[in-house]
Design a protein around this nucleic acid. Structure first.
Length: 487
RNA sequence: GCCCCGUUCGUCUAGCGGCCCAGGACGCUGGCCUCUCACGCCGGAAGCACGGGUUCGAAUCCCGUACGGGGUACCA
């Protein structure tokens, strides 16, 4: 395919959610796969609900995910502006040209009047009935005299509308079930029904990949696109592909109300964008029968919209975490260190900026934790004991209850006595000494021998490897901590 | 109500008429490894919604039914 142009066009209402990311990803991957153009457009025609804060969040989300756009906000492009709130003149002009060619007509009916007529006629079809299509001039004058303002409606053609959906195949709607629809409010404000197809036409969009919720608006958009082509406003009717929903708990669409749906929740927990994206890609698509870990580049190479599954997918946190873990293991330690740094700073584990001593300690410690954490934020709990000021060090109460009982403290006492005699403070020396003194001399199992020592030194039952941790902590601080649980 | 979409292990999926008495992954589960945790390794349970066709042969094609979802706005 040549000159592919796709767009992603969220409404800036609220916080970006995972469905947003999945749709953005598929559009982006489609564009990149075909060497096409990825357009980012903001559909902020709903003045009531759109906010600047949400707009910033949309851009922030795309940047965090690494889905770069070729045309759009802050990047510009030949078809700007890319915020619909700044394109009012364009829409007014299109509306005039549509009306001049009778593709549209003014409608003065109220919702109540329409409902009453439909009920009276016993119609199975709801929605607008076309009453004002050929309005009697006298009636029109009367309504205008009483101050009624009309909305502009698109005249749906007779017959049917058929398209070959990129993910679902042929779909046909009889237009008798698709009522004439409003293109702008009575006050003149353009509606989504107008601006979405108009901008797609103006921006030369060739493929529309969007959520299944918009499938039923497609039979209205295709005739409108044809009208735009007829008027020379557009050049082609784009192809459409409707992506399956991302569902939440139970069997309902993941809504913005659902906390699991918020994209930034994952960012703030230390998910890697490539990990989340990999997982999201799997919700409706797979790269191969026996493989589910891949990079964005590999996805771009393999992505084909025709392979997208049409049925809805349930978001599964456990699997998302597992996929993320796999990506963590793919990263070199230095990279994990860089990415974990903001979390460590935020938690106060290290200062901002990081001091030289802390930086050096971090470089030595990260290899121990990088391979055992699944999300970046976990580095905070894993490393805290190494960086905390001695005065602030505290042993986890629950872990102490469990392991630092009389038996545990006896073990710690033996360990302390033995370690005080060590002349070399190294991982190997510490391990040899404790192995001999606790496991062999005392005759207790390794986990019972090292557990109490671990809690005393690191403050927790879960920690980086014990002997390495003690080496990094240093002789004096290690011995002091052993001592402190004995008093 | 009407229109449209969908239905393979608990979950995400592979499968596009014979390779499938259905493969992979997460989860669950038994075991191994092991200084904790995490990782890793070996094994197990678990699925083609139902009913009719078409065909020598159907998870795959067709038609019904059931169930789920979306739409039916001067929201997007």
């Amino acid at each position: 395919m040549n000159n592919v142009r796709v767009r992603f066009c969220p409404s800036p209402t609220g916080s970006p959610h995972v469905g947003f990311a999945r749709t953005a990803l598929y559009n982006w991957a489609f564009a990149r796969h075909h060497g096409g153009t990825f357009v980012f457009r903001i559909e902020d025609t709903d003045k009531e609900r759109s906010t600047e804060e949400s707009y910033d969040a949309m851009l922030g989300a795309m940047r965090w995910l690494g889905l770069d756009w070729d045309e759009g906000p802050e990047v510009g492009g030949p078809h700007g502006p890319y915020r619909q709130s700044e394109r009012g003149d364009l829409y007014r002009d299109v509306l005039e040209r549509l009306a001049a060619s009778s593709y549209t007509y003014d409608c003065f009916c109220t919702t109540e009047e329409v409902d009453a007529r439909r009920k009276a006629s016993g119609s199975k079809v709801m929605g607008y009935d076309g009453f004002c299509r050929d309005l009697d001039p006298a009636q029109r004058a009367a309504w205008e005299a009483e101050g009624r303002k009309p909305v502009v409606r698109f005249r749906m053609p007779d017959g049917s509308v058929t398209w070959t959906d990129l993910v679902r195949g042929d779909i046909t709607f009889e237009t008798q079930f698709v009522p004439d629809f409003a293109l702008c409010r009575a006050n003149g404000d353009p509606l989504y029904t107008l601006v979405n197809p108009v901008d797609d036409a103006l921006m030369g969009i060739t493929h529309v990949l969007r959520g299944e919720d918009l499938l039923s608006s497609t039979p209205r958009q295709i005739p409108l696109h044809q009208a735009l082509v007829d008027l020379g406003i557009g050049t082609v009717v784009p192809e459409f592909g409707h992506l399956p929903f991302v569902m939440g708990e139970g069997n309902k669409k993941l809504s913005k109300r659902d906390p699991e749906s918020h994209l930034f929740l994952y960012r703030d927990q230390g998910f890697l964008p490539e990990g989340l994206l990999n997982y999201l890609a799997l919700l409706g698509w797979s790269i191969a029968a026996d493989r589910d870990i891949f990079t964005l580049e590999e996805m771009v190479e393999a992505f084909d919209i025709k392979d997208v599954n049409p049925n809805p997918a349930r978001f599964d946190l456990k699997k998302a975490e597992a996929i993320n873990t796999a990506h963590m293991r793919l990263l070199p330690v230095e990279e994990i260190t860089d990415r974990a740094l903001p979390f460590l700073k935020a938690a106060g584990v290290v200062s901002d900026p990081v001091g030289d001593a802390d930086a050096e300690l971090l470089e030595q410690a990260m290899p121990l934790v990088a391979e055992r954490i699944n999300k970046l934020v976990e580095a905070v709990d894993m490393l805290g004991f190494l960086f905390v000021a001695d005065a602030d060090f505290a042993v986890d109460a629950a872990d102490a209850d469990k392991l630092l009982n009389d038996d545990g403290r006896a073990v710690v006492r033996r360990a302390l006595l033995k370690l005080e005699t060590l002349t070399e403070w190294s991982t190997a020396a510490i391990q040899d000494a404790l192995q001999a003194e606790l496991v062999e001399a005392m005759g207790i199992k390794p986990r019972n021998a090292f557990g109490p020592v671990r809690v005393a030194v690191t403050g927790r039952r879960v920690s980086p490897p014990l002997f390495e941790s003690m080496e990094l902590l240093g002789r004096e601080r290690s011995l002091a901590r052993l001592q402190s649980v004995l008093v």
